[in-house]
C-alpha cells in the first residue's frame, strides 16, 4: 500500500485529504509545519507528496528541493494559477501544480499515475 505525505497549514485540509486518500486505499502522513516535515524527512518512508504551499514562506522551496533530491514525486497545491508559482514549482522538481479546490476525478487520476 502506497503512503502519501500531505503538508498543509490548514488542519481541516489535512483531515479532509487524509480521509479521502484513506478511503481510496492509501496510507497518509500529515504535516503542518517545517518541524513536522524535518522529522518526516529523517526517515522518508512515503512514496508521494502533496505540498499545499498556502501560508508558508520562501523556505518551502528548499523543502521541495529536498524532496527532489530524495526522488520523491510531489505536486504543489496552490490557491491560484500563478505563472511564477508554476515556474518555481517545476524548477524545484514538482511534477506539476494543482489549483485548489481540487477536482476529485482529476486528483484521483494523478495519484494513480504517480502510484504506478
Amino acid at each position: 500500500m502506497k503512503t502519501i505525505l500531505i503538508l498543509s497549514k490548514l488542519i481541516k485540509n489535512l483531515e479532509l485529504m487524509a480521509d479521502f486518500l484513506q478511503k481510496q486505499g492509501y496510507n497518509t502522513i500529515k504535516a503542518s509545519s517545517y518541524e513536522d516535515l524535518d522529522k518526516i524527512l529523517i526517515d522518508p518512508y512515503f512514496d508521494i507528496a502533496f505540498i499545499d504551499i498556502a501560508g508558508y514562506d520562501n523556505n518551502i522551496w528548499d523543502y521541495c528541493e529536498k524532496l527532489r533530491l530524495l526522488n520523491k514525486p510531489f505536486y504543489i497545491l496552490s490557491s491560484c494559477n500563478n505563472p511564477k508559482i508554476n515556474e518555481e514549482s517545476l524548477t524545484r522538481g514538482a511534477k506539476g501544480v494543482i489549483v485548489k479546490p481540487i477536482v476529485i476525478k482529476e486528483f484521483l487520476a494523478i495519484i494513480k499515475s504517480l502510484a504506478r
Binding site: S8, L10, K12, D52, L77, S79, P101, I102, I104
Partner: peptide, 13 residues
C-alpha cells in the same frame, strides 16, 4: 477551531 478548508469544494465536502 480552524474548521476552514479550501482543498476541496464545499460541494464535495
Amino acid at each position: 477551531e480552524l474548521e476552514y478548508y479550501d482543498i476541496f469544494s464545499p460541494a464535495e465536502v
